[in-house]
Design a protein around this nucleic acid. Structure first.
Lengths: 343, 343
DNA sequence: AAAAAGCCCGCAAACGTTTGCGGCAACGTT
DNA sequence: AACGTTGCCGCAAACGTTTGCGGGCTTTTT
């Protein structure tokens, strides 16, 4: 196909009778160029719809003001709120953002990280795929670019990490259930414990302990896949227990919604007979009846905070490689809805 | 901060005693380079973790095998299915994809389109923002890069367009409602008619006409914002009509779900008293009770088809600018669930 | 034996910006 | 009048690839 080719600095320079460097500087508002010249150049550039060649710029400069973001799953509601926080903050700081997803595959994650290196991003924000075990690949990235982990993290990796205080969040949820009179509180959790999952489980255990409620192993349900379907399956099992739970805490909303569906099907009154609390305030949580109580994680704030720390690291020009890394824990809040509301 | 700098062809060439062009050709499997040399170079490149400078490559080459995609809203479920189709097909054809969203703002759409030009993408897939009126900006893009419109389109723009046969889809939905005995079928639609919205409305009108059902203006509800909340509001009004509808067809799932919520609240039996059908098979459609009947649009196929036509246009090397554009209509299907299931 | 062809490698130009540094004219100071 | 400074512009190198084309050696053909 035949399309118009792009206007270059050379053409503008030729038309106006300036040199290429004068035109380049004029368009970048350089102090060496007179206001008169700047105005002339800018007008002609606009008229010709001049657009700088990004590759030539990237080739010549080492800093492109691009941030790379890699997340396990883009369509996950909570992830999209974090990305929104990143994008909003990036805009205020004059950075562009490239987002890609690793589809919870370590191989894809590495591919995406390498793509970010190829784009010569200034820094990388990474939410780890659940199956990340070998951190060497991540350390290799850390050698080359500033990196901040957010949401799904790993303490082995020596860099700044922005997380939800999952332990406290789970603790609050269990405390709330106890406060409305529940004592046999089940947890639906992951079999293979990620860092986040472990934290939530710890919060569950601690809350029970603090309120002198004995831990019943039968109430601890584990599944590989914290999905709606699994939530249904686990709920089906839970309600057949001789001493069944009077509350369910699921570490994802999908799982919690699956549980609600089964309880509804079995005409079990929510929250009177069994209360349900989920985690992460998905869009579905207000669709399901009764509406789901859930941990609200301030995704926008997490995203913004992650980028803030990354930019701070990018723009800190020191030769000391031993930059202290931090773990920043962000508070969440419990939204009490009908699924656990008892007066 | 201090990070390792990237290895270049020059360094590899120096270490191995070859020239830069030999190393470059070896890594690109060029016919002029012997197998022995290729093996030596590839091994050393891997050892040194060589990564080509994307900017240098882009600078030197005119074709980067990158596709730009601009959509109104990324988190919209249906959009994500189309993007998945695009990404999957791109992978098989060896293209990379840059996705951005215009947030239903014409200004942002133009910004994103210009960003795509700056990235020197080979071609652009665009789903128009609803408020697009002035097509000159799009025509300017069309002058410079191959462009295919998909999902939200505009017949004024002379390029290939991939769409759902919305008219037929709506027709099928209305026909289904008629076939289960419904006669007073309301439609919840947009006030400001986009092309897609118009098509669905036409399908609604045509189906009523074909089945000799008089059109009742009172059953045509329009709203600026086809959201869950608006769906609730319109449903609230609909059920107070002297002669209320016995079915509701909403042109989005969100709207339909809002309607269901209100009907549930008012103890109106779905679908016996009032049946409900939505459009686009969102994730919510199986969460709401009763589960929602809805038009399933094959997003994956739309995305794949759009990219297929675009790549065809990119890779057609002819000097004839008058390339015929086509409109490709893709069929949808109606998923009948509990909200309109009557035996 | 000589010429032609093929194989394998290297030279250096090119892409479009950015930028260090230099040149020239005008102005100010001594 | 001479010298120094400032303002404003231009020259050309640099960035790291790709690639057209040429050279030298070996092999094949006449």
């Amino acid at each position: 196909m035949k399309k118009k080719s792009n206007v270059t600095l050379k053409e503008i320079a030729k038309i106006l009778g300036f040199s290429i460097s004068t035109v380049s500087r004029a368009l970048r508002d350089h102090v060496d160029i007179s206001d008169e010249t700047k105005a002339i150049v800018e007008q002609k550039a606009k008229e010709l719809n001049y657009m700088p060649n990004m590759f030539a710029q990237g080739f010549r400069s080492s800093r492109m003001h691009i941030i790379g973001v890699v997340v396990p799953k883009l369509s996950h509601y909570f992830t999209s709120t974090m990305i929104e926080g990143i994008l909003d903050y990036a805009e205020t700081k004059g950075y562009r953002v490239i987002v890609s997803e690793s589809k919870n595959s370590v191989e894809k994650q590495n591919q995406m990280l390498n793509t970010m290196l190829q784009f010569n991003v200034d820094g990388i924000l990474l939410s780890l795929t659940r199956k990340t075990a070998n951190v060497q690949d991540i350390l290799n990235i850390l050698d080359r670019k500033p990196l901040v982990l957010f949401d799904k993290v790993m303490s082995k990796i020596p860099c700044t990490q922005i997380i939800i205080d999952g332990k406290q969040a789970a603790y609050n949820a269990i405390e709330h259930l106890i406060n409305i009179g529940k004592r046999r509180i089940a947890i639906f959790k992951e079999t293979e414990n990620s860092f986040n999952s472990e934290q939530r489980f710890e919060g569950y255990l601690k809350a029970l302990k603090d309120y002198n409620i004995p831990i019943d192993e039968k109430l601890i349900f584990s599944t590989e896949d914290i999905s709606l379907e699994k939530g249904e399956q686990l709920a089906q099992i839970a309600i057949t227990l001789k001493q069944r739970p009077d509350a369910i805490f699921a570490i994802t909303d999908s799982c919690a919604i699956g549980a609600i569906k089964i309880l509804n099907k079995n005409n079990i009154k929510i929250p009177e007979e069994i209360a349900v609390v989920g985690f992460s305030n998905s869009a579905h949580s207000t669709i399901i009846e009764p509406n789901l109580s859930t941990i609200n994680q301030p995704g926008h704030l997490i995203g913004k905070t992650a980028l803030k720390y990354l930019i701070e690291e990018i723009e800190t020009d020191n030769n000391n490689d031993f930059q202290s890394s931090k773990t920043v824990e962000i508070k969440s809040s419990l939204i009490v809805r009908d699924s656990s509301f008892i007066v």
